[in-house]
Computed example of a mutant assay.
Amino acid sequence: MREAAQLKALAAGGLAVPRAAGCRGGVLFTEPVTGPTLADLIFKSPERTGELLGRTFGALAVLQRPVVAEQADQSAITERGIDATFRRKFNGLSGRAYIDRLGEHRLEEHTRHGVAIVLRQVIARLVKLRLAPPLGAAQVLYGDLKPEHVIFPDGPDELPVFIDPGLQRGPGHADVAKLVSRTVLSLIAAPPLTGPVAALDGVDTFVQEQLRPMGRALRGLYLRRLLVTWLMDTANITTTYLSAPVGLPLPEQAGAVIGRIEAVSTLLDRISALLIADTDASAAWRLALAQAAKAAVR
């Protein structure tokens, strides 16, 4: 299986990953990894968010090593990519019909109608925004980098273990965007007891560290790509939650996100409006974090 081969290559490259235990019926089983996830640690210690995101992303420097890059090229899991998922979901007439059916039997009718109106507008903006030329050469991406896939079995001061890879090549900002997208969704679904501001300050610290070696013009381009890709990923996963059959068990976070779908759709609407208006990238980033803070307050 592709994922088993990727885990083997990641281990050879020096990344901490679980060992494959076997495969049955096309499903890969790995040895269990216990401990708090990145999401758990951010909820418990939001003031450490920047440090934790930095430690997570720093460990992924091994992705560019030849043994990992070769495996990414041989067995890429491209269907997990943000852009590929977005194009598959929101393509033409079928995409509009998909949006119109979202939330059936999960949302009250007036809420469902309002969310559909907002999402149609958001998706139309993102379709235009994602057509911008790619930024730099394609890099090896983890591909499914979200807080629940990063586990700290030895505590927050040690290196994490990574599960469920989706290695592929893509723009260098894509892993950062997915990590930001899913971290913000976690904060909206379950805000830390002290509120979301410290955690979002940590998200900003993490992103500013990625920008530090870049020139001013490149920083602006990077931030715009990051924001667009963040919104695309959030649109991808929230619509997946809303379109799931009622009888299908969903993760706890999915139910919490559905319960906060109006806040999430408002967040998508306001940030995408900034981007389509060609707002300065640094200003758009600051305003996006402010909107995320509002969305995460119950």
Rank of each mutant, 00 (worst) to 15 (best):
L179Y: 07
D154F: 10
V257Q: 14
A76M: 00
L102T: 07
G220S: 12
P46A: 05
E252V: 06
K44I: 11
G35F: 03
L218V: 06
T229H: 14
E104D: 13
L187W: 09
R286K: 13
L167F: 08
L52P: 04
A281V: 04
P134T: 02
E51T: 08
P249D: 00
A189C: 04
A235T: 10
G136R: 12
G54F: 03
E262H: 08
L141W: 02
R182I: 05
V228I: 08
A293S: 11
L159Y: 09
G13L: 02
R270W: 01
V264R: 13
S265H: 10
I258C: 06
D164M: 11
G50R: 03
R19C: 13
V184R: 06
I99N: 03
H113Q: 15
A217D: 12
L223Y: 09
L15V: 01
T194D: 15
A76Y: 02
R88N: 07
G136N: 12
L135A: 12
A177E: 09
N236C: 03
A84G: 10
K44A: 14
A190T: 07
A132R: 15
L131H: 15
A124F: 10
Y142A: 01
T49A: 14
L185G: 09
L102I: 00
T37W: 11
V176N: 10
T37N: 08
S94Q: 13
K178V: 02
V27K: 14
R96M: 08
D100S: 14
D40Q: 01
G143P: 00
R130W: 08
R270G: 06
V207P: 11
K8N: 11
G25H: 06
D144E: 05
A199V: 04
R112Y: 03
L267P: 05
L275C: 04
T239D: 05
P32F: 03
P32T: 00
S181P: 07
A189H: 09
Y142H: 08
S94G: 08
A124E: 15
L126R: 13
H110K: 15
A296T: 02
L15D: 00
Q208G: 11
G54I: 00
D154K: 12
D278F: 10
A277F: 06
T239H: 12
R169A: 10
G155P: 08
T205M: 11
A281F: 05
S186A: 11
R48A: 15
A11P: 10
L268M: 06
D175S: 07
I123W: 09
S272N: 07
E51G: 10
Y142R: 02
G114V: 01
V257N: 15
V115D: 12
A254C: 05
R80C: 08
